[in-house]
Nucleic acid binder design. Structure first.
Length: 466
RNA sequence: GGCGAGUUGGCGGAGUGGUUACGCAGCGGACUGCAAAUCCGUGUACACCGGUUCAAAUCCGGUACUCGCCUCCA
């Protein structure tokens, strides 16, 4: 089976032909760690996690490298730290506040991703750990005439690179003509971008040939991919908003530093997200964090399934209605695979859908078809291949929970036998409110815990008279 | 101003020339003391106008509307 993906660089769907089948390399731009991950951050994490799983299936677990960076040098982080320090009375050093924020946000990110069953990448480098590599690449760009020093900054010269703009399909002259921002006076060309900038004493900075400073944003990905992958690798992913300028600049830096390389052969970009039909933006106050959802009791798998319900390249409208529908679907799938042990491979129809430019709606549709068949093992294995956990709640096995429910059910069975249906219904309603679903059969009743099961409500219900 | 994406049935959402996508909701039925869950059945579609073709949701041209990027952003 061959894997086909849409390559943003060429604008066509292409068969993936790894440079080295025993070392398939995927690079994805990770988070800037200054705040809780929102669902817009979650989308690429989930989408490329699924790609990672697919690649591992195709080429073998040990033959896929996935690097996803942590951006822990950024002016947004510095600003956040300064604001926190201001609020807390300026006791702590700014650099220490920064380290605290980036460490804590990184932990949050890991927790949130784990809740959605996102696998850890094989490598997760932090920008602060790759400064020497960045400095070395900038030096090389200066030597080759693609970068220049000006006013304490080092800038990349877009005019030195004829293909600048080709990745994102932009024309430099046109962009300058339509630019709405003022040009920094030390730039030779308005589109030149910063590789290195000076840091004042209170800001994070590292010694360099150009004085104490910090790297521009784009260079870290170039340096990291070089460090772990070499000059060329297979797939580079990220949100479509990163295509320009971030990925354009990354590609320009890397290709100028290594003119004989290909850098990323294939570029994959996920579409952006709307919330209830509107752009998600902090300024609009409608951004939804993964933590918000989890705290509300939304299952991480439901979030994941909702993100996968739309093809990754399409814009996704995040709505409560969609979330509820996907929650119900996942519950149905869990019910369907209760007691099933999945050991085999995922069903070929699901894998084929994913091999077709990661067509998750098609894969979900295939799962509906498999669900109707007898092979529950293949069904469960296929759902779990999408990274959706189907395991039942461990609480359902707790003896105290079982005992209370079965005592109540016994009373209900007796009421039904006496044909006192009002009483039987009252007991059923009490259980329902506590999150216990009842299923009557001719020879007794079954129960299971719903997602909203609440132990305290159950205890209270059992203590009341009915 | 420049660049790009989208417009599919009540809702969600696939589909790059010819067969019912699929799901949710709705409706009808089975099952049930009544439910829940489950199962069976079922209607509604391709923004608009032209063109190409034996055949177009799918290709080409145009129109309208929506949205995004060009500034930090996944």
């Amino acid at each position: 089976m061959e894997l086909q993906f849409y390559n943003t660089r060429t604008g066509t769907r292409e068969v993936l032909t790894p440079i080295d089948k025993t070392n398939v390399r995927l690079y994805v731009c990770g988070p800037t760690v200054y705040d809780r991950a929102h669902i817009g951050n979650a989308r690429p994490a989930v989408v490329f996690d699924l790609l990672f799983r697919l690649l591992r299936l195709q080429y073998g677990v040990d033959h896929v490298q996935y690097v996803r960076n942590i951006t822990d040098i950024d002016d947004k982080i510095n600003a956040r730290a300064a604001a926190m320090r201001q609020r807390d009375g300026q006791q702590e050093e700014l650099l220490s506040v920064i380290r605290r924020i980036t460490d804590e946000t990184t932990r949050w990110y890991h927790d949130d991703m784990a809740a959605m069953n996102v696998l850890s990448p094989t490598t997760e480098p932090r920008a602060t750990e790759c400064i020497p590599e960045m400095v070395s690449m900038i030096e090389s760009l200066i030597i080759k005439g693609h970068a220049y020093e000006a006013d304490g900054h080092v800038l990349f010269s877009v005019e030195s690179y004829a293909n600048y703009g080709s990745l994102a399909g932009r024309n430099v002259e046109e962009m300058i003509a339509g630019a709405r921002v003022e040009q920094a006076p030390f730039k030779r060309n308005a589109m030149d971008f910063v590789l290195w900038k000076p840091s004042s004493e209170d800001l994070p900075g590292w010694e360099s040939p150009w004085g104490r400073g910090r790297p521009g944003w784009h260079i870290e990905c170039s340096a990291m991919s070089l460090k772990w992958f070499g000059e060329s690798f297979d797939i580079h992913g990220g949100g479509i908003d990163l295509a320009f300028p971030h990925h354009e600049n990354e590609a320009a830096q890397s290709l100028c530093a290594h003119p004989n390389s290909e850098f990323a052969k294939m570029w994959m970009h996920n579409g952006l997200l709307l919330v209830e039909g509107k752009k998600m933006a902090k300024s609009l106050g409608n951004f939804v964090t993964v933590k918000d959802l989890i705290d509300r009791g939304v299952d991480g798998g439901t979030i994941r399934l909702t993100l996968l319900s739309t093809h990754y390249r399409q814009p996704l409208d995040w709505t409560e209605r969609k979330l509820a529908e996907m929650g119900a679907l996942l519950r149905r799938w869990r019910r369907l695979s209760e007691g099933v042990t999945a050991t085999g491979p995922p069903h070929s129809s699901v894998v084929e859908a994913l091999a077709d430019d990661l067509n998750t709606p098609k894969a979900i549709s295939a799962l509906h078809a498999i669900a109707k068949e007898e092979d529950k093992m293949a069904f469960k294995a296929s759902v779990e291949f999408l990274g959706l956990s189907l395991s039942s709640k461990p609480i359902a096995n707790r003896e105290d929970v079982k005992k209370i429910i079965e005592t109540m059910l016994f009373a209900r069975v007796q009421a039904r036998q006496r044909r006192e249906f009002d009483e039987a219904d009252a007991i059923r309603e009490k259980l329902r409110v506590a999150g216990v679903e009842i299923k009557d059969h001719s020879n007794g009743s079954e129960w299971r815990l719903a997602d909203d099961f609440n132990f305290n409500t159950l205890v209270r219900a059992s203590e009341e008279k009915w």
